[in-house]
Amino acid sequence: MKPLLVLFAVFLISLFTLRFLTQKFDLLLSARIGMCAMLIFTAIGHFAFTKGMAMMIPSQIPLKTEIIYFTGILEILLGIGLLIPSLRIYSAWGLIVFFIILLPANIYATIHHIDYQKGTFDGNGITYLWFRIPLQILFIVWPYYCSIKVWH
């Protein structure tokens, strides 16, 4: 829920700030700025809640901590890439693939009641997927429409 709030809040702030500065609304740039801010926000979680996030990865996968750090850095780089015109499309495709790959970890965490912030097994549970899956779809569609579809 917090990433969604960051995404929309920064999108709206950017939209009106750009309107004030340029005398026009720039929905696409505001959307990319919102996604970048959301990705930086979620990337911080990779470093603040490493143990809990590592619990979201099935036990048979090695190097969990390294994966969490790598994906945190990747989120930051892809988010910044959305703001660089020559990297925008590549970053958007990278995010789409990233969010698709991330969905099974979120499903795994939900099924196992993982609370990544506490690093415990008393998380929300299966009903959380009713929110998480549509949210993940939004995160997949967002970079497509604000970075890729515009160019076709």
Rank of each mutant, 00 (worst) to 15 (best):
L83M: 08
I67T: 07
E75Y: 09
E66V: 08
S91R: 04
F47Y: 10
Q60H: 15
L82Q: 02
G45L: 12
A37P: 07
A37H: 04
P58N: 03
L82H: 04
G81T: 04
I61A: 06
L77D: 06
G81Y: 01
L78Y: 01
R88V: 07
L77G: 05
T71I: 11
I80G: 10
M53P: 05
K51L: 07
A92D: 09
M38E: 13
I57G: 00
I76D: 11
G72L: 06
P85H: 10
Y69E: 10
K51H: 13
G72N: 07
A37L: 13
L82W: 01
S59Y: 11
K64S: 03
A54P: 01
T50I: 11
A92V: 04
P62H: 05
E66D: 07
I73G: 06
K64F: 09
A37E: 12
M56P: 00
I76Q: 08
A54E: 05
T50S: 08
F47T: 11
F70T: 14
S59Q: 14
A48H: 13
A43Y: 02
L63F: 10
I61T: 02
I44G: 12
E75M: 14
I67F: 11
Y69F: 14
W93E: 04
I89C: 10
A48P: 06
G52L: 12
A54T: 13
I44M: 13
I73W: 08
G79P: 06
L78N: 02
Y69T: 12
Y69L: 15
H46A: 04
G45D: 03
I67K: 09
I68Y: 03
I57V: 13
I68F: 02
L78R: 05
F49M: 03
L83V: 08
L77P: 07
S59A: 10
L83C: 10
T71S: 15
P62Q: 05
I80Y: 11
G72E: 02
I40S: 08
E66R: 07
E66S: 12
Y69H: 15
S91G: 14
R88Y: 06
I40G: 10
I67E: 00
L82R: 00
L63T: 03
I68C: 04
G52C: 08
I40L: 15
I73F: 10
F47K: 14
T50L: 11
Y69D: 05
L39A: 05
F41H: 15
G79H: 04
I44V: 12
R88D: 12
E66W: 02
I84Y: 14
A37Q: 06
